[in-house]
Amino acid sequence: MNLIISTLRKDDLYNKKIIENIQKNISNVEIIYTEDMNIKGCIGCNRCWLVTPGICTIKDDYEKLLIKFLQSKQVVFITDLKLGFVSYKLKNIFDRILPLLTMNLRFKNGQMRHYFRYKKHYKMGLIYKGNGNREFLEKWLERVMINLDGTSIGTYNIENEEEILNALINC
């Protein structure tokens, strides 16, 4: 399954257009709008590492996303850019991936990394709306994916529909 998680409003015109286009060209796509969900920010309590390993202590709608990450072949996030970075709504979603890792550390490619809780190769990409430095976003997503032992599908301006579709079809 290909999963699209949009933090934009459903009635956002850019959002509507790109999602229509993806649905038309790519099979087996599921769309989730976080607008309908209650997702809080990580509070840094470390309980998902040390007290209830693998389970977040915050009881809201995030668990549904965590399970979807494990089920999906690839995940593409759609976000606004704010101050040159992804909106806090999306950053909260990324901050709460910690249950996918364990507390323990090791070295991988010369840097400290957490052990992965599950054997799973994650593929994630980003579609952004607004102004920002793509080079930075690329670097950020790549580093995030190193933490997850996954692959970045890349970051794409929401207006570059052709590029987005090519990337999704080819990966």
Binding site: W49, L50, V51, P53, I55, T102, H121
Partner: peptide, 26 residues
């Protein structure tokens, strides 16, 4: 050390528990 420390904090399982393992599709 982490195992002992976690136990002190009230951890009942293993630090490597996989509570959502059944959902994984590779």
């Amino acid at each position: 050390f982490m195992k002992v420390f976690a136990k002190k904090l009230g951890c009942k399982g293993s630090l490597n528990d996989k509570p959502y393992q059944n959902y994984i599709k590779r």
